[in-house]
Design a protein around this nucleic acid. Structure first.
Lengths: 267, 267
DNA sequence: ATAATAGTGTCTGTGAGACAGTATTCT
DNA sequence: AGAATACTGTCTCACAGACACTATTAT
């Protein structure tokens, strides 16, 4: 039963065309104290490879935390209080604990920032250009998280040392530190793409929602208006929504029907 | 001009569901000697964060090197000669130099293994579960590279210390070291997906090729047969191919027309 | 003639997208 | 009555996919 499922257009889209700023290198050389025969080195048979010749870069995990607020998609940013990029805004992140996976680390960051667990989390990309941080070599594994406004109930942490933490519309950002502007641009590309063939849109909505709210999520991510009739037609035909027979009255107009996401949908 | 371009089905596909093997941690603690105020730490306002409390993981770059050989998609693997996973096969990789970007590092690995430059290279994913390497914490940024058979002209490096380096069909692999089986599975998922909306298929072919060869590439990546008529129809309609008016005679049958990839195609 | 691969066309179904008017509720 | 949002259907076009026979070359 030979079939055909291809389609050939467009070049690739991954952001490798980064252009490393070519920063001066710190002269320090670090000799690891323990066992340095790491997997890839051992796999690597060239004698020229020796871990002790290389300093280890710092590795951090950053988390792009997104939610729907005021009918827009917004991202949680932290204001920097020190050099470099003092006063500019940055994506929250931190170091990896030795005993946790990258994703666990992202979940921990997320919980520390927002108090929220059990959210959609996906690895986005790893950024590691030398010079992206002027102080030292930092490689950052970036995740993005989608959280529902209700999960926050207003408690984005006060910040024990009064650091500023604030929500910004993803398409209306302040001056960003490091390469964080690029990271957010890439996040939106990824999300726009995944919207087409996954259910990530539902991750930003409460258990019951109107078709209008769902459309708002799609428009907020894609950053463009969608036709209401076509949108509803398509969503309903997929069968991933089931009606709850509830309605929501709001303002002086006809109340909207509420739907629920039906996770049994793999078509 | 309101339009509509959505489609909602299926959950996400990124491989976070990895399930860390929970390996024992090496007790060694490394205190970096230099400046430790990395970007994300400074952005991170919690006083509880301090780089000196964490050992730095090893970071490597692995490269999944793929080419068409014997009408199949094959991957270049290296046989391990030491514990752990002695005798099993691994994806080639190595450490990052302080002054090179992640992608530069991948290009260097690739050139060291194959002598080839100027190839399609794309970051795949970053694997960092604790315990994926039993010796120490290793975080690996994985790239995949698509090279044309002609670029190799037989010279996959002899290996100065007689390490075995060999090509394997991607859908018929030997016993793999570490989590490298998972990495290859994920590679094929990514490639299959990208085949649909990019031109990565052409990266595996010489400048002039027949439609039959192009179809073989698609079938080799997707691991299933495609209908010849539908395939040719679709490819030709996209307009990314231009005829070269050359033909190739081969065997006792009608010669095939040769085409060339036309990079001016963004539809 | 035979073998072997190159090359070609039709039909059906599905889905994307353009497009405008009616229905219901509150004030 | 007016305001405000909810809700609905048709047409066209493009594309996916099933499906079988003819064309050209070498032996």
């Amino acid at each position: 039963m030979a079939t055909d499922a291809t389609s050939l257009t467009q070049p690739n889209n991954a952001p490798h065309d980064e252009g490393s700023p070519e920063q001066p290198q710190p002269a320090r050389t670090h000799i690891p104290s323990g066992q340095v025969d790491t997997s890839e080195q051992a796999a690597q048979t060239r004698a020229s490879y020796d871990a002790s010749r290389y300093e280890r870069p710092s590795v951090t995990v950053d988390v792009v935390i997104l939610t729907m607020r005021r009918r827009r998609l917004e991202v949680l940013l932290v204001k920097r209080r020190h050099w470099p990029f003092e006063g500019m805004w940055a994506i929250p992140g931190g170091f990896i604990n030795p005993d946790e996976s990258l994703e666990d680390s992202a979940r921990r960051e997320l919980e520390e920032e927002t108090g929220v667990r059990d959210v959609y989390l996906e690895q986005l990309y790893t950024f590691g250009d030398p010079g992206r941080d002027p102080r030292t070599r930092v490689i950052t594994v970036v995740y993005y998280a989608l959280i529902r406004q209700e999960q926050l109930h207003g408690m984005v942490r006060a910040g024990d040392d009064a650091a500023e933490t604030r929500w910004f519309p993803v398409y209306s950002l302040p001056e960003m530190a490091f390469d964080h502007q690029k990271i957010l641009t890439y996040t939106m590309q990824r999300m726009s793409g995944k919207l087409e063939y996954t259910t990530i849109g539902f991750q930003l909505l409460p258990p019951e929602f109107t078709l209008g709210e769902l459309q708002e999520v799609y428009e907020a991510i894609l950053n463009r208006p969608l036709d209401k009739r076509n949108f509803r037609k398509k969503v309903l035909l997929t069968g991933i929504l089931e009606p709850t027979n509830h309605t929501r009255k709001e303002g002086q107009h006809r109340p909207a029907a509420l739907y629920r996401f039906n996770p049994r949908a793999e078509n």
